[in-house]
Amino acid sequence: MITKDINLVKKYLRDGKNVVIPTETVYGLAGSIFSDDALKSIFSIKKRPFENPLIVHVSNKSQIRDLVTEIHPKIELLIDTFMPGPLTVVLPSNEKVSKYITAGKSTVAVRIPNHEITRKLIEEIGFPIAAPSANPFQQISPTTAEQVAHYFSNLDLPILDGGQCNCGIESTIVGMDKDTPIIFRKGAISIDRIEQLVGKVFHHLPKSIHMPGMYKKHYSPLTPLKLVKELSELSPEDMSKYVGLLTFSERPILSGFRKIKVLSETENEMEAIKNLYTYLFELDQAKLDLIVAVKISINSEFATLINERLEQASN
């Protein structure tokens, strides 16, 4: 149920029940970090494997300190610069952090969301909340309360309505390997901005999954998605179906597409990122046989980020 009643949401969290919260990135399926029942329920509702850690959301820096054994100076600089905001930092956890949050690892992922309603919520309940994206595992991340309601309409789950997410894509996840910053997941904060503060960073791709969003298949519509460089790659068989199209900035003059979504007609990459999941969701609801997405040809970090998300969605 979609609601603006923050007191109702606070009661659910204090009772060890799950709720949905808005953030600037995507909507999150939340529970108290001190309720193992609420944490286990997150995995059950999403059908998410327990090997995949949860991100803890806090309202201030002191709550981060309360969950970890230390903060590397470079990570502290990133916290002071980008939080509240779409950055998640990975830090050594202390005994307060549940194994369901860490997936049995020695680290915890934590961030301060840049959404006034959710920060107010966390401040008023007095404890952090764990919150992965509020969608079934590997499906499209939701950027509106209505999308969440579509996914979980059969559940007693308050969805705190905070409007459409401003970023529309997940947070960047950063940790440390000794004195070297590591990017575990690319996201809304660019690597270039991070390197301006802390020097060279590396993109870490571990053999085992242990960070959110690192599965080969992710962010996927239920409708089959075909990713192409050019529309000329489509076969007559493809076009004989009910086909939808997702493009960056250009709408084809002549086409047999049933539905077309343009991420940004002005070639604004941030607008395209904000629209990505929303438009994928709309195409997925259009009763199509196939969704075709055209890769962005611009050579930039955020264009590459969109292409990588589409690659995961098409697997």
Score class of each variant (00 low, 15 high):
residue 237 E to M: 10
residue 257 F to Y: 13
residue 237 E to D: 13
residue 238 D to T: 13
residue 233 E to K: 04
residue 258 R to Y: 15
residue 274 K to M: 08
residue 270 M to V: 07
residue 240 S to H: 08
residue 268 N to R: 01
residue 236 P to Y: 08
residue 242 Y to N: 15
residue 269 E to G: 07
residue 234 L to F: 03
residue 232 S to M: 03
residue 252 P to R: 10
residue 278 T to C: 04
residue 246 L to S: 04
residue 238 D to F: 10
residue 277 Y to M: 09
residue 262 V to T: 12
residue 272 A to Q: 03
residue 236 P to L: 08
residue 269 E to N: 05
residue 255 S to A: 09
residue 274 K to A: 12
residue 234 L to D: 01
residue 249 S to W: 02
residue 259 K to D: 12
residue 247 T to N: 05
residue 277 Y to T: 03
residue 251 R to L: 06
residue 270 M to P: 00
residue 255 S to Q: 04
residue 234 L to I: 01
residue 243 V to C: 09
residue 235 S to N: 08
residue 240 S to Q: 08
residue 249 S to I: 00
residue 264 S to H: 05
residue 278 T to D: 08
residue 248 F to D: 00
residue 264 S to I: 02
residue 234 L to G: 03
residue 234 L to M: 06
residue 265 E to D: 10
residue 278 T to V: 05
residue 250 E to Y: 09
residue 274 K to P: 01
residue 234 L to E: 06
residue 244 G to P: 03
residue 265 E to H: 04
residue 241 K to S: 12
residue 257 F to G: 04
residue 272 A to H: 01
residue 247 T to Y: 00
residue 274 K to S: 08
residue 253 I to N: 12
residue 256 G to H: 13
residue 241 K to G: 10
residue 244 G to V: 09
residue 246 L to M: 07
residue 262 V to G: 05
residue 236 P to G: 09
residue 275 N to Q: 11
residue 249 S to C: 06
residue 257 F to H: 10
residue 260 I to P: 02
residue 265 E to C: 02
residue 275 N to C: 07
residue 273 I to H: 00
residue 275 N to V: 03
residue 254 L to P: 01
residue 276 L to Y: 08
residue 238 D to N: 14
residue 235 S to H: 11
residue 262 V to I: 15
residue 237 E to S: 11
residue 243 V to Y: 08
residue 243 V to E: 06
residue 247 T to H: 01
residue 272 A to Y: 02
residue 251 R to I: 14
